[in-house]
Every structure is written in structure tokens, then in C-alpha cells.
Amino acid sequence: MAAPKLHLDGLKVGQVFHSAEYYVSADEITEFSAKYDPQPFHMDDELAKDSIFKGLAASGWHTVSITMNLLVKSLPLAHGIIGTGVEKINWLRPTRPGDILRINAKITEITISPARPDRARVNIHISTVGQDNKVRQELVGKLLIFRVSQSSGAF
């Protein structure tokens, strides 16, 4: 059964959302990197051994993409995850083949639009954590969220 869709009125500062787990394979790392971040330490395990990573490591952008996937599946917003920006992204340690990632997403701020009270900017702090409970990435995003009675889809 699908989770009920959330609107602005159903969110509060301090609320936390947790995702399911996501397994990261070596093939996925090399395929993503070949297409979007073709650097040797993301594409070839042997070459990666001589890099700062000392072995194959996912692109940070790949980790961001996995985070987005997990966020969409764990934060059921009625109008979708509409990002208006990212305040920060920190990659604290590399994502490796065999890692099992999950996210914890905490609402840190809700600012109702004075000009359009049917919507708000919601800041969300997302930690992407591995099976060892060590944070791989931290991201602070800004989302556009609507009230139940959204008057218009226009931005």
C-alpha cells in the first residue's frame, strides 16, 4: 500500500524520513562514471588503486543520484520533490562497490512564501549512510512544497 501523499500542512521542522537500503555494485559505479564522470578512479579498479581513493570509488554525483532516488521513495510529497537549490554537498568518504546506502532526511526549516502563502521553501538535511553507519555524503537541499489547496501550478 502506498504511503499517503504529503502536503505542506503535514510537515514540521524536526520531522525525519528514513529510506530503504540501496546496494551499490561495481558495475553500476563504472557504468555511471563512464557516462557522467569518466575518471580512472571511478572506472577501473586497478588504476584506482594508485589514486587517493586506493580502490574503485563512485563519483560523488553518483552518490547524489542514489540519494535522490532514495529521497523520492521515502518522502511522498503530493506534488513531487521539487528542488529549488542545494545549500551544500559534502562528500565525507567514498561510496564503494558493495556499499549498502540509506538516507535520513530531516526537515530543518519551513519558510512560508509571503507573496504566495499556498507554498513554502523547506530546507532538508540529508545524510547518506553506509552499512557501517558512517556518513558518505551530507546534502542540504531546498524544496518547494505546496499546501493541500494549491491554487495554481505556476511558479
Results as ranks from 00 to 15, higher is better:
S25G: 08
S25P: 07
D27T: 15
D27G: 14
E28N: 10
I29R: 10
E31F: 12
A34I: 03
A34M: 11
K35P: 03
K35N: 04
Y36F: 13
D37T: 05
Q39H: 14
P40K: 04
P40C: 05
F41A: 02
F41Y: 15
H42T: 06
H42E: 02
D44G: 07
D45P: 12
E46T: 09
A48D: 02
I52Y: 13
I52F: 15
F53V: 03
K54E: 12
L56M: 07
H62Q: 13
H62S: 02
T63M: 08
S65H: 04
S65T: 09
S65M: 02
I66L: 11
T67D: 08
M68G: 04
M68T: 04
N69V: 10
N69W: 07
L70Y: 06
L71P: 00
L71G: 04
K73R: 15
S74M: 00
L75R: 01
L75E: 01
L77S: 00
L77D: 00
A78M: 01
A78E: 01
H79M: 10
H79F: 13
I81H: 01
I81T: 14
G83Y: 01
G83R: 04
E87K: 13
K88A: 04
W91D: 00
W91T: 01
P94L: 06
G98Q: 06
D99Y: 15
I100A: 14
I100R: 15
L101K: 06
I103H: 08
A105V: 06
S113Y: 08
P114L: 06
A115C: 06
A115I: 12
D118N: 08
A120F: 13
N123R: 15
I126F: 09
V129I: 14
V129W: 05
V129F: 08
G130P: 14
D132V: 09
N133L: 13
N133Y: 10
R136N: 14
Q137I: 00
E138A: 05
V140T: 06
L143C: 06
I145A: 09
I145N: 00
I145H: 00
F146P: 00
F146G: 00
